[in-house]
């Protein structure tokens, strides 16, 4: 079952059966992504976690109307954004910016070695992502991490599809600038990349 079907199934079970297990499963499926998405706005771990919690409280409160929600994932991202913006508006004066939370943006199952990237280069890529303007970073994150379509991201971020397209292009270009044109002695390895 692909992820969208799985989400639709969980949505149905929550709406019709008020199934707590389905609710928990959905939480676990989406927590990480919503948390990181919220973090890109609020820049506080505690706040991001609380916002995701608020999103799921809302989800439980409206469970009987869930049948009408067409794309639940997009909907959840949208209210996560709204809640995050509300939070910033309320807490703007006390906003504490921490940079470490986003460090693991590219942390994945593969180590830098497996990626054929040097540790130094890895740091550079991380820094390039951190330096992206917040909206650009949020859009890039939705597209790259969650594989959302441009029109969905546009709906979530309340911008045009063209803006999404431009922001993703800008982010890609800035990242590319952080990549070396060649990898010195490893250039010979580049033969394994085909570009047909």
């Amino acid at each position: 079952m692909n992820e969208l079907d799985r989400i639709a199934d969980l949505q149905h079970r929550i709406a019709i059966l008020e199934d707590m297990r389905a609710y928990q499963e959905l939480y676990h499926l989406l927590f990480d992504r919503l948390y990181r998405f919220s973090f890109s706005f609020v820049k506080s771990r505690e706040a991001a976690e609380e916002i995701v919690s608020d999103v799921f409280i809302k989800l439980w409160q409206i469970r009987s109307d869930l049948k009408k929600v067409v794309a639940l994932k997009v909907y959840l991202y949208t209210i996560t954004r709204n809640f995050s913006i509300n939070y910033i508006t309320r807490h703007y004066k006390h906003q504490v910016v921490s940079l470490d939370g986003m460090e693991d943006l590219f942390v994945a199952s593969a180590s830098p070695e497996e990626l054929a990237i040097s540790a130094e280069m890895y740091q550079k890529v991380q820094a390039a992502i951190r330096d992206l303007p917040p909206q650009c970073r949020a859009i890039f994150q939705l597209v790259r991490e969650d594989g959302l379509k441009y029109k969905d991201v546009a709906a979530i971020m309340d911008v045009s599809v063209l803006t999404v397209r431009n922001q993703v292009a800008i982010a890609t270009k800035k990242l590319a600038a952080a990549l070396p044109a060649t990898l010195g002695k490893r250039i010979a390895d580049s033969a394994r990349f085909s570009h047909s």
């Binding site: 590219f106 199952s109 593969a110 054929a116 991490e145 590319a176 990898l183 580049s190 990349f193 570009h195």
Partner: peptide, 16 residues
């Protein structure tokens, strides 16, 4: 070409 391939690899790495 090389950068484009690197970009693809980075892109496909999903956060754990």
């Amino acid at each position: 070409v090389f950068q484009a391939e690197m970009m693809k690899e980075l892109w496909l790495q999903k956060p754990k």
